[in-house]
Simulated scan of single mutants.
Amino acid sequence: MTTQTFDVTKAEAFAQQMLDVLNSAAIALMTSIGHRTELFDTMAELPPSTSEQIANAAGLNERYVREWLGTMVTGRVVNYDPHDKTYVLPAEHVASLSRNAVSDNIAPFTQFIPLLGTVEEQIIDCFYHGGGVPYSEFKRFHAVMAEDSGQTTVSALFDHVLPLIPGITESLQQGIEVLDIGCGSGRALNQLADAFPNSRFTGYDFSGEAIATATTEAQLRKLSNIQFQVKDAATLEERDRYDFITTFDAIHDQAKPDAVLQNIYKALRPDGVYLMQDIRATTDVGGNLDHPVGPLLYTISCMHCMTVSLAYGGMGLGAMWGQEKALQMLAEAGFKQVEIKQLAHDFQNDYYIVHK
């Protein structure tokens, strides 16, 4: 039996690391609030201002804004002038926090922290008794996911994602049948339907709330070439119907991802193409040690992706199922040709270009 030497320096460094974790968690919570109340957007347009001026410009209560600013100042997010008692959001920080930043805006992702906190008690119960937490327990999840997909997928759809597939843009212009499984609130599919009026688009999602949102947007856009339907993709029974099938960050969430992939194989025409966007990772945690958002993704997986799947008696793949498992399951579904592509601006996702 070997005796482990206690390293005081390492212990102190780790204690400091844990204090940093607490501070970062607090900043994340307040960043979520700053995003949802549009305080960052307001401050991005203001010169150095007092808490009262900021609150008035944002239409918010000054006392709460002042305390929020306390976190932002001590967290080195907002600069403070103690002489004039004014606050300013540096332009370099605006680039990561304002809605005008588009794809570089990190603030929307902080919403996952308070969202996941609402199911902590249920998750702890699962640690003791197994099972999972159903979709219905996650309030605002689709609203947050809509912003998430808007950051990573929708904003890059035409300039970056579609060009990964040779000839698909031309086919969409000419007119093909397209299916998006796990379409969520339909942001990507509605944009495609708007851009390619000669093609016909169908969106399936398990959530009635998401489908209602997607349908409303399609109606507002006056789109006649798109339809949305509440459907469990594991029950899909279509054959050789679609030229192009997409799943954006959806397969790992499925209760029965193996059945879903098999159904996609059957629904895809022989010369069709399947685009699967999913989390970039390795199946073994050892390959993810340097992943830039590994802790965040494993947490979201444990407290949403995995547990929702398990709640419905599913496989519980989790968000970090990884390339190795993905390639194995695609092969088991019957697919013969798989190419994995990546985008320079997107460190979070892999894009699987799949053919029969």
Rank of each mutant, 00 (worst) to 15 (best):
F6C: 02
Q17C: 07
Q17A: 14
F40I: 07
M43F: 08
E45S: 13
L46I: 12
A55Q: 06
E62L: 02
R63F: 08
V73E: 12
N79M: 13
T86H: 10
E92Q: 14
S96W: 07
S96H: 07
A101I: 09
D104N: 15
P108W: 06
T110R: 00
F112N: 00
F112W: 10
P114Y: 05
E121D: 12
I123T: 01
I124W: 07
D125V: 09
C126W: 01
G130F: 08
S136T: 15
K139C: 06
R140A: 10
T152M: 04
A156I: 00
F158K: 07
P163K: 05
P166D: 13
G182C: 03
N190Y: 04
Q191N: 15
F196A: 04
P197V: 03
E209C: 13
T215D: 13
E237G: 07
D240L: 02
Y242Q: 00
I251P: 03
Q254E: 15
I264R: 00
L268E: 02
L268V: 10
I279R: 02
A281H: 03
G294F: 12
T307P: 04
G314L: 09
G314T: 08
A333C: 04
K341P: 10
Q348Y: 13
Y352P: 00
H355R: 15
H355F: 06
